[in-house]
Write a protein that binds this DNA or RNA. Sequence first.
RNA 1: GCGGACGUGGUGGAAUUGGUAGACACAACAGACUUAAAAUCUGUCGAUCGUAAGAUCGUGCCGGUUCAAGUCCGGCCGUCCGCACCA
Length: 919
Amino acid sequence: MSRYNPKVSEPKWQDRWNKAESFKAAPHGDKPAYYVLEMFPYPSGKIHIGHVRNYAMGDVVARYKRACGFNVLHPMGWDAFGMPAENAAMQTGSHPATWTYSNIEAMRGQLKRMGLAIDWSREFATCDVEYYRWQQLLFLKFWEKGFAYRKESLVNWDPVDMTVLANEQVIDGKGWRSGAPVERRKLSQWFLKITDMADDLLDALDDGRLKGWPENVKLMQRNWIGKSKGLQMKFRFADGISAPQGFEDGVEIYTTRPDTLYGASFIAISPDHPLAAHYAQTDEKLAGFIGECQKTGTSEEAIEKAEKRGYRLPLDCGHPFDDRKLPVYVANFVLMQYGTGAIFGCPAHDQRDHDFASKYGLPIEWAYRPDDAEPVSDEVANRFREKFSISPESVLGNPQSDDVWFGDRQFSVNYTPYIPPLGPNDYNSNHIYRKFLGGDDIAVHPGDAITAAIKKIEEMGQGEGKTQYRLRDWGVSRQRYWGCPIPAIHCETCGVVPVPEKDLPVELPEVDAEEFKTPGNPLDRAEGWRNVACPKCGGPARRETDTFDTFIDSSWYFARFASQPGDAPVDKGTVDQWLPVNQYIGGIEHAILHLLYARYFSRAMKACGYLSVEEPFENLFTQGMVVHATFRDENGAWLLPEEVIIEKGAARRADNGAPVSIGPIEKMSKSKKNVVSPDHIADTYGADAARWFMLSDSPPERDVEWTDAGVEGAWKLVNRIWDACEPAADALKAHDFSKSPTDIDEPGLALRRTTHAAIAGVTDDIDNFRFNKAIARIYEFLNALKKTPPMKKPGGEPANGVKAEAFAQAEALSVLARLIAPFTPHLAEECWAALGGEGLVCDAPWPKADPALLKQDEVTLAVQVNGKVRAQLSVSADAGKDETEKAALSLDDVQRHTDGKTIRKVIVVPGRIVNIVAT
RNA sequence: GCGGACGUGGUGGAAUUGGUAGACACAACAGACUUAAAAUCUGUCGAUCGUAAGAUCGUGCCGGUUCAAGUCCGGCCGUCCGCACCA
């Protein structure tokens, strides 16, 4: 008996697949197309086991779909532009291109060792000129269509990376890569008008276009887009106020709660508001205040600690409905980026406004004042108390007014917009919701009050209903070298001019590696490249030195994988045949940024006639991470798992035996060194064992902890499968399986049933992305297979010339080889070949379960007495209720438990259970 | 604060969507083989009581619906994730 040797087998089969071009996506023929894609990697240096998990999942899908008769596209490439390459250049002095391409080289080799069914002929890196030149063309088209524009804007400036960050790249007020606190600066930037598509991006989440996406991702995108309906209105200045020039109209605010207008007590504008800037010119104290506000971090912590602070402007606004005067403040909590950068404060209905009003002694008035309120009944009051957990001691009713209040939190019944209402009959709505806006406008529900308020303001000509989005336009300028140059030229006379299409690509200039040691953008200093003639007037001009955000690179790569013509970004006919991606797989960390941008890009490309789909990813799967314990030596230095030996729960260094402390289990990261190299695993156990382990046990969407024991278990399985196939091989080869037996004996039939149940189960599990369960089923199948007597050389001659048991066993092994093929492809090929299978197993059709063999003749039911299982009952699968009931009642165990009792009821659920109710 | 997900043996996790809780695997323990170890194979493996047959309890906690609840409903507790001075 020979031992399975992955070191020999794996390269051998990879070579065969390669020579046969097994995984090259065919030009479209009669087979249906299936496009499976994993988010392409950033070439950071080395593949780690987390990548392996990601790509193994895609590979299962790719191989499975291929076996099912699809023409599968499963490509791979590199998201190759970005900061780390420049950081490496800074530290090591090697050029970003050199660094990137050598990483790609190394990582490609590592991926190939994993035996992935990838069409490598389509591979590219986003830093290839042949890719980014078409990205530049796309941008020109977008610009032409008005999707791209330039504007002066406050930007998030990362002082360490010396670049602008998109809002999405600022996490807790810090740069997503550098971790440095972000500053605010004003710069002229390129933007893509993603907000124009906000409605469609939002609608598609709900109208079924993304039914193949996980709910949590859709929810995150929904929140991110943040659509809200409200009122945009002007608060005119009060009589006697002389408005500054240019601001005569008053202060424009946005609110989603116009129903609280009666409670308005002040106006607050953002420190970044033009009106604030106007006064700051002449008011040094204000200028100082604004400066301080801008310094305040935007981190969670800073926000929580930050006091509500305001600076009183010499301005008052008039209330639209009565003669109140509202003071105007510059307030540190008002954001310029949202709405109009100004609000009205309603302290009675908003905690934040309340804080502010309390501090500055501003009036606090309820927006809903019941002129005709009656005290609510005790019963209603009790319902409210119960519903909102308000302590019973809380006062009901307010002696000073007829208003009705609850508890020390000063909730009022009139506060209902923030309290979900009870049923319509729980209270007298007329006294909960007061007359609103006077006259005949009786607002019964908060929604009606909002509508009424908007109507009123519109009639008064002071504003209009408006929808706001939290989503802002996508700033795509980056002041970096290692990115796709933005194809624009700045001319002194013509302004910003697009680079003519014929002059594309705008290639990155050669820059000495030493240049990267100077902070800032090397492109700014590349005089020869930067200074050009204006394409319009021929006068002196300079190139745009910003490069694109790398999220642009990853927003259309999937289309380029599908179609790579030499004269266009994509060929529409070809790309339409493949898109949308049928199955996209990647990490949850891309739930918002990448996936939203790619959705936007598809829409923009569609508008420019490049594609026909607006949703690029039909089904999305977000897989969990691979996590691992962390290790540190006595000096606190991180250690690689390979450098540590664990015995009886204690860890020590492999080289000198010094003690090692075991830290928490965390996401694998380079800095904490808790990474596992797939090379090391492939050397010891083979790629198949690594793939198998990554897919077993944990559900794919959940995190999985890498353990040595786990991969050893997988390695054992590889050998168990080989041990099942190899000894049977010779015997099976000698047998004629072209005929199936007409009569089959019981052991043979039992095995066939098991085999076909395994086919049905594994197929269903793969279809539903339950790889861990598919693997459990393969184990069950293998265990059952091993329990049947080992194959003997075919002897004895049944009537039709085929020995039944041999047939069943041959079928089982042949099925086994095909079922494991998506998971452990090399082992599957080796088994397939040993068993005398035709061609390569990766070309073999997926086995089909025979429905006749899935049907059970006899089923075992649990028999309960009063809900407790007391006996097992075997009945034929089509036994009637009466028959089953009778059989159940006659069981000894049942009689024992019903003895002396009266049988009240018998519930029979055919195929499931019998429950006898006896008292 | 707002929104969402989840809570099952020593561990990772199953449970046909209301029908035998703990599939499958890891770890552990015992046995076989071996001079020995490794590998392999066989068995045990939720808790308590019992020699056993068996009984009782058991899916974060409390309560409810049902012949039947891990699953459904109400209320707590806890963990994780997303968003957040968003007006």
